[in-house]
């Protein structure tokens, strides 16, 4: 799976974003993390193979979250669906 890493000075948490390459809300999420110097990884799900898409679906659903994008997973525990600035801010202690 093609996981892209974006460096940042804030690496308190492990942040993974499942995004779509065409989605503006996903772009806003990535930008928000970048603007706050948060180190994060992201995967553009629409560019993945069918097998990888299924792995991602399982990962999201195993966390009990809905299948929407962006899905931000923090420390492989907390899941935030959609560009929810308020929730990201709280979870990442920004």
């Amino acid at each position: 799976m093609n996981i892209s890493k974006v460096a940042g000075t804030n690496n308190k948490h492990k942040v993974l974003v499942y995004a779509l390459s065409t989605c503006v809300w996903c772009k806003m999420t990535k930008q928000y993390l970048k603007d706050n110097n948060v180190e994060y990884e992201y995967v553009d799900v629409d560019l993945c193979s069918e097998e990888e898409k299924n792995q991602i679906r399982k990962h999201i659903q195993d966390k009990g979250a809905p299948l929407g994008y962006p899905t931000t997973i923090i420390d492989d525990q907390k899941v935030i669906t959609g560009f929810r600035k308020d929730l990201l801010k709280e979870a990442l202690e920004l």
Binding site: L20, T22, C23, V24, V45, D46, L67, Y69
Partner: peptide, 12 residues
Amino acid sequence: RYGYPSCPCRLA
């Protein structure tokens, strides 16, 4: 890529 303009924010 799909032949129709599906929603950019949903996985088609």
